[in-house]
Simulated scan of single mutants.
Amino acid sequence: MNLTIREASLGDAKIIIDFQIKMAWETEKLNLDRAVVEKGVISVFNDPNKGTYFVAEGEGKIVASLLITFEWSDWRNSTVWWIQSVFVIEESRGKGVFKKMYQFLSDKVKRIPSLAGLRLYVDKTNTSAQGVYSKLGMNGDHYQLYEWLK
C-alpha cells in the first residue's frame, strides 16, 4: 500500500472523531459521547500545546490517525513524544500502516535535537498491538502505568 504520512489539519477532524469513537468501542467496548469527543479533537487543533494529530493516507483516503502529546523529561532535558489514540481502519490493518507512521515519527525525533524519543501505552489484553510495538523495537521493560481517572 502506497501511504503518505502527514500532520493532520482541521479538515481531517471529522474522520479523526469517527476513528476515536470506533477505537473506544473496539478496544474497550466504550460508547463515547460524540459531542465530547468532537470538542476534545477540535481542542487539539485549536491549542497546539495539547498535541498534534498525524494521519496516513492511502488509496485516496485517510486510513489511520494517531495523536502525539508531549512529556517534558528533566532527566533528558528534552521532550518525549507520546503516541496515543492510534486507529487504523480495518481493511488496512496488517499492511504496515502503523509501522510506516512509527518510522515517520521516529525519523522526526532523530532529526530534532530537542526530542528524546517515543513512548506509548497499550492495554494489557491487546497482545496484537504489543506484538507490533515489539517488532518495531519498542519495549515495555522499564515502566508500568498506574492511573486514576475521574
Rank of each mutant, 00 (worst) to 15 (best):
Ser134Arg: 14
His142Phe: 07
Thr27Ser: 11
Tyr102Glu: 09
Val55Ser: 12
Arg6Gln: 10
Gly11Leu: 11
Val122Leu: 02
Trp25Met: 13
Thr4Gly: 09
Tyr133Asp: 00
Phe54Met: 01
Trp81Tyr: 09
Lys61Arg: 15
Ser134Pro: 02
Lys95Glu: 11
Tyr146Arg: 12
Lys108Arg: 15
Ala56Asn: 03
Gly117His: 03
Ala13Met: 08
Thr4Asn: 11
Asp33Pro: 11
Tyr143Asp: 04
Val97Lys: 13
Val80Pro: 03
Glu91Phe: 03
Ala56Cys: 06
Lys110Leu: 10
Gln130Leu: 00
Glu147Leu: 10
Lys50Trp: 03
Trp75Pro: 13
Ala8Tyr: 04
Asp12Ile: 03
Val86Met: 11
Glu71Gly: 06
Met1Gln: 15
Leu32Gln: 04
Tyr143Ile: 01
Lys39Thr: 08
Gly117Ala: 11
Val80Leu: 07
Ile112Phe: 00
Val41Trp: 00
Lys50Tyr: 10
Ala35Gln: 15
Trp72Ser: 08
Lys95Gln: 15
Trp75Arg: 15
Asn139Cys: 04
Met138Pro: 01
Gly131Ser: 10
Asn49Arg: 15
Phe98Asn: 00
Lys108Glu: 06
Asp123Met: 00
Leu118His: 05
Met1Ser: 15
Phe45Glu: 01
Ile83Cys: 03
Met1Ile: 14
Ala24Ile: 06
Met1Lys: 15
Ser65Phe: 05
Thr125Gly: 12
Leu105Val: 11
Asn77Asp: 10
Leu149Met: 07
Gly94Tyr: 01
Leu120Met: 05
Glu38Val: 04
Leu3Ser: 03
Val55Leu: 10
Leu105Asn: 02
Arg111Cys: 04
Asn31Pro: 02
Val86Asp: 05
Gln130Ile: 04
Gly60Met: 02
Phe45Asp: 01
Gly94Asn: 10
Gln103Val: 14
Tyr53Phe: 12
Val63Glu: 03
Leu136Pro: 05
Val86Ala: 09
Glu147Gln: 14
Ala129Val: 01
Val41Tyr: 00
Glu38Phe: 01
Ala129Asp: 02
Gln103Lys: 14
Trp25His: 15
Phe104Arg: 10
Gly131Ile: 01
Lys110Trp: 01
Leu30Asn: 06
Ala8Gln: 04
Trp81Val: 00
Glu26Thr: 02
Leu66Ile: 07
Gly40Arg: 08
Tyr146Cys: 11
Ile62His: 00
Asp18His: 05
Ala8His: 06
Lys61Phe: 01
Asn2Pro: 14
Val132Gln: 06
Arg76Cys: 13
Thr79Met: 09
Ser65Leu: 07
Ala116Tyr: 08
Leu30Arg: 07
Val88Glu: 07
Ile17Phe: 02
Trp25Gly: 13
Thr127Gln: 07
Tyr102Ile: 10
Glu90Asn: 14
Lys150His: 07
Trp82Cys: 01
Lys14Glu: 05
Ile21Asp: 08
Thr52Tyr: 00
Ser134Gly: 09
Lys50Leu: 07
Tyr143Thr: 04
Gly58Pro: 10
Asn2Ile: 13
Arg6His: 10
Asp107Gln: 10
Asp12Met: 03
Val132Ile: 11
Ser92Trp: 12
Gly94Pro: 02
Met23Val: 06
Asp74Ala: 06
Lys50Phe: 03
Ile21Thr: 13
Ala24Met: 11
Asp123His: 05
Lys61Asn: 14
Val86Arg: 05
Asp123Asn: 09
